[in-house]
Amino acid sequence: MNEITCIGILVTDLIAAPITNYPDKGKLVIVDNVGIFTGGCAVNTGIALSRLGIKTGVIGKVGNDSLGDFIINSLKSENVDTNGIVRSKEKNTSTTVVLVNDEGERSFIHYIGANGDLGLDDINFKYLSGNKIVHIAGSFLMPKFDGAQTAEALRKIKGMGITTSLDTAWDSSGKWFETLETCLPYIDIFIPSIDEARMISKKDKPEEIAQFFIEYGVKTVIIKMGSEGSFAFNGKETIYMPAFKVNVKDTTGAGDSFVAGVLTGIIKGFSLKASLELGNAVGALCVTSFGASSGIKSFDETMDFIKEHKNNK
């Protein structure tokens, strides 16, 4: 039985770095590193959770192709339960070309693929029975599932006595709040980035943003703030947690890793403050290596990192 299941986007990432300048039309540039990695919010968060010692499953959709095999086999090798993954008969596996500049920041070329096929009827709710948390990973990148279907899934999951969590991606459609509004009353833990949270709420400061979502029924708002750390508000506690200072190589997967750290803390009964600190640590370790999962350590190694770097924030 899984403790946490991640429902969301499954992606193969083709990462090229560092990109110091972009080629002109018909031209070529040379990079130091190119690699193929697993990616997508559900995959990244699932792998990080498993490495942290949490029994984890993933629900999502891949194509009937070699990249789908790559994702499923990679998850299995990380001891992530893949029984909830289904194959699309219409679309290939979602893929992102990730271009990383010399400061570690990323730009993306994305093919939605099978993630756009994922729908409510692909979710086996019996598979979720006994979970402590179900995390929706990658809202705004699942056009069939986003909005009403996500709200219905969250409603059913909460009805099973399971804590719900949701993380967003960038909404290229620009609908933002319109898509998410019906979901908010069923979200226990909401974990957007600061930029996404601003776009959804039309508020600027973290305190204002958090209050906006609390008023719509969210129980706890946790905001990812990149190099500035993280913020949380649950109607009682207001917490700012500074980031750990590390040598950044690639920020791919940092937000998903942060989510895994926070949810691990919650599963283990940590305080909200300690859960944020654990999230910051997992995110910090992530960015020290290329790829979304290469830098993720075990729970004990991560706790050692916190002890060693507690004053290095």
Rank of each mutant, 00 (worst) to 15 (best):
P143F: 03
V86Q: 08
F213E: 01
V221M: 00
S201T: 12
K132F: 01
I109P: 06
C183K: 01
D167N: 06
G57R: 10
M303C: 10
V287F: 07
E152S: 12
V31E: 00
N21C: 11
D204F: 05
A153Y: 04
A48P: 02
F305S: 09
M160R: 10
E301T: 03
M303H: 10
K61V: 06
G283R: 02
V97P: 00
G39S: 08
R106T: 10
G113D: 06
G255S: 03
Q211T: 14
G283A: 08
T93F: 01
D204K: 12
F190W: 06
G159Y: 10
Y22P: 00
N131M: 03
K310S: 11
V221Y: 02
E301Q: 13
T45R: 05
G68W: 05
N234W: 09
N92E: 13
F125E: 12
I266S: 09
K313E: 13
V282E: 07
A16R: 02
K27E: 15
N131A: 09
I36D: 01
P242C: 08
N247E: 15
L75F: 05
N64D: 15
I59M: 11
C183E: 05
T12M: 11
D188I: 09
E90V: 12
S294G: 05
F305R: 09
P185H: 06
A284G: 12
L278P: 08
V221D: 00
A254W: 02
K89R: 03
G229S: 03
T288H: 11
F305M: 10
I133P: 09
T251H: 01
N2D: 10
E196V: 04
G68F: 04
P23C: 06
A48H: 04
E90C: 02
T150Y: 03
K76A: 13
V259N: 15
M199L: 15
I194G: 03
F140V: 03
K203I: 07
G235W: 09
I209N: 03
T38R: 14
I7S: 08
G138D: 11
